[in-house]
Design a protein around this nucleic acid. Structure first.
Lengths: 158, 158
DNA sequence: ATATTCCCTAGCATAGCAGTCGGGATTGGA
DNA sequence: TCCAATCCCGACTGCTATGCTAGGGAATAT
């Protein structure tokens, strides 16, 4: 497990999907503009998120991305590992017999720590963020505006 | 906050200090050999750890590094932030007024998440690892060997 | 049809990682 | 007093991953 700015990009983008996704798919162009991330870079990140089964894309006008599962079934740990593929384990793993044939104890301890960290991040889902009152407030405002936008442009006008 | 292999090196090295440090300072050469990390690279890491006040060096023969504080007062978060200095905040921070003048909500949420993560890692101290029975066992064996080593080389022979 | 969106591949500049080298300064022990 | 073991410091280097650009597809609402 690794945690860098790349993971942050993915997590914040997924938060966007979770928050604003109630009114239909969210385009990468929107996220790009809002978060200041390059569009093509976002596309590459979302390719990984899609391969990991976390999002699904909707093509064509009015398309975008939406969560592949309910927000309470997508954890932060899943997002980070999907994007930050890093299984570069310790080098001194079995064969190195430092300390009189005993394999390095600290590696065991590190494995334990990283496991704990993963479990912690796996316990935090996107829903934990979306369900907050202030987020709900903004999301409602956003969807009202989205609806007005649709009406202005005749999206729903039969 | 960031978490990469660099931070892992630092944390595992600090574990070594906490475990084997009871019998005097631990040399970087030992850690280097045990963990398979380059000596000079370790020196650079420990320079940062020392500047952060987490360890103190003892020069001369028989020297090495020891923890600057008791192990239960050194958290994993402190070690990682000491070594992984990364305060590269979000780019769209106040001035970007996406979504109708409202600053990006997801940044707030990310800040909250990283704060939670820090608090989690700050709650885990080196002592949590040292105090385990199996670690205690090995540490005792190690110190017996260290003592024998001292006697063999006449360290304590008046 | 056409514009909009996702999708894919290739390349590219830069920064940071991990390491090397070469030298100090300090200090315990012979 | 000298030597060897340590910590300390700075500069340099190859390599990888990051973040980004460019350029093209394929699907699909209108």
């Amino acid at each position: 497990m690794k945690l860098s700015t790349k993971g942050r990009y993915a997590v914040t983008a997924m938060m966007d999907l979770a928050i604003y996704g109630s009114a239909g798919p969210v385009t990468l162009a929107d996220i790009s503009q809002c978060q200041g991330i390059s569009l093509s870079y976002l596309e590459q990140l979302f390719a990984k998120l899609r391969k990991a089964g976390l999002v699904e894309g909707v093509r064509g006008p009015g398309g975008g991305y939406r969560l592949a599962r309910p927000a309470n079934q997508i954890s932060v740990a899943q997002i980070i590992t999907a994007v930050d593929e890093s299984v570069d384990m310790t080098r001194c793993k079995g064969e190195a017999n430092c300390q009189d044939g005993e394999s390095c104890l600290t590696h065991e301890l590190w494995m334990d720590l990283s496991k704990r960290l993963y479990e912690f991040l796996d316990g935090i889902t996107l829903a934990d963020f979306v369900e907050r009152p202030e987020v709900q407030e903004i999301a409602r405002r956003q969807s009202r505006e989205a609806l007005r936008h649709h009406l202005l442009f005749g999206r729903f006008a039969a």
